[in-house]
Design a protein around this nucleic acid. Sequence first.
DNA 1: TAGTAACTGTCGTCCAGAAAACATAATTAA
DNA 2: TTAATTATGTTTTCTGGACGACAGTTACTA
Lengths: 229, 229
Amino acid sequence: MERRWYLSAIDIINELPENERLFFYQKSHKKKYSKNSVIFSPGDQGNLIYYVLSGRVKIYNLSECGKEIIYWFCQPKDFFGLAEVCGGEMRTVFAEAVEDTEVLCINRTNFEELISRSPKIAVFIMRILGSRIRQAHETIKDLIVCDVHTRLAQLLIKLGQICGCSHNGVITIEKKFTHQEMANMIGATRTTVTEVMNEFRRNGLIECDGSRISILDYARLVKLINFSD
Amino acid sequence: MERRWYLSAIDIINELPENERLFFYQKSHKKKYSKNSVIFSPGDQGNLIYYVLSGRVKIYNLSECGKEIIYWFCQPKDFFGLAEVCGGEMRTVFAEAVEDTEVLCINRTNFEELISRSPKIAVFIMRILGSRIRQAHETIKDLIVCDVHTRLAQLLIKLGQICGCSHNGVITIEKKFTHQEMANMIGATRTTVTEVMNEFRRNGLIECDGSRISILDYARLVKLINFSD
DNA sequence: TAGTAACTGTCGTCCAGAAAACATAATTAA
DNA sequence: TTAATTATGTTTTCTGGACGACAGTTACTA
């Protein structure tokens, strides 16, 4: 199982040789976005790559009827906005700061210069893109073959891996995701998520206390995934 | 709307400067696969990139219960196997020749050498990867918000764009896709696809004659998509 | 040229989960 | 502190489309 789900697979900046790292910092500039502000929207020209320094960014889309589909959340050390930059294509998704967020931006020209100076970066970026493709494929598969129970169990496990703290067997997810957000991550309705969460709780798989979710029985949650479908 | 759907967005080889193209040919070697042979499977080490010369390759996955999920078909001039190569990761999908197929292969080392000689190639490849990500995201959205009618209408339009011939208003898809294959492309069952195809036919949207599908009323098919959801 | 295999057409049955509609917390703002 | 949001809990109805089961067609292949 891949560790960092919808996130980039590697902390590229810190794996870079010293001089490339410096060059990256030189060529990028810092920007700040306050909570709930939109960083880019579908239709915008995709000329910037973003690297998260602090905060959290939601990558999502809206259907014609207003339903939100969340593809992933970006945390510090993640890149976003990569997919459209090389062709200068239009954005097809929204990026929105869900907390006050600081990012580094680098524009297309500088990015391409960076690549030509250090092909190693290109390879890193391709790894990130590759990992995103694999993730998206897995999501497609899950939407087709798994029911909501399974998708939610999977989501909990993934969230646990990304932003959970393990403490004698119990994994606690501190960052609060609302049922609505979880629903939008797995393509379900809020009500169904509420129901299934409570079912999981009644069965002793998880425990919810206001601001956090605890995975009590990781093993059984995993089993739930494998024996579905 | 993007023209070349699940396919790569550009004919990279022929956009390349002469000497890089030659270098590409030098460093790659030709392989042949007969119809129905598997090129790679999940779990294989992903050390090769493939470029299709002739034939057709299906990129797909199988769920635990044996259901096939088709991500795309590769045609001549398409790359596949890109996503795992830069990290040398394991394959997570199947690639299978659905016709007798000839490909050029290039291994990781040579590929990285190629990139370092010509950063332009890296940019091209990133464009392909980016386009795949966008496509995958659209598929995810469609699975979540659209019903089978809409997804099938969309599929027909896309197939028309990729392998259709236009002839005074009628777009004919010569390449035969079975209902089962179409179902596996949109995450539906074969029976439902059969039913909806017949409904489309009864409504004068399409016409099926043995080996080909004709789109009679493209405009109405498009309208069907936009007024759903 | 039959015989088998792979597609297509059509029907019932059934159920996961969407949709709608409220009631009740729990936060946030003012 | 109180109003106004925003999040959760629950129940009831309704339906798209999966699933299973066959019969009829077309197309390989031997």
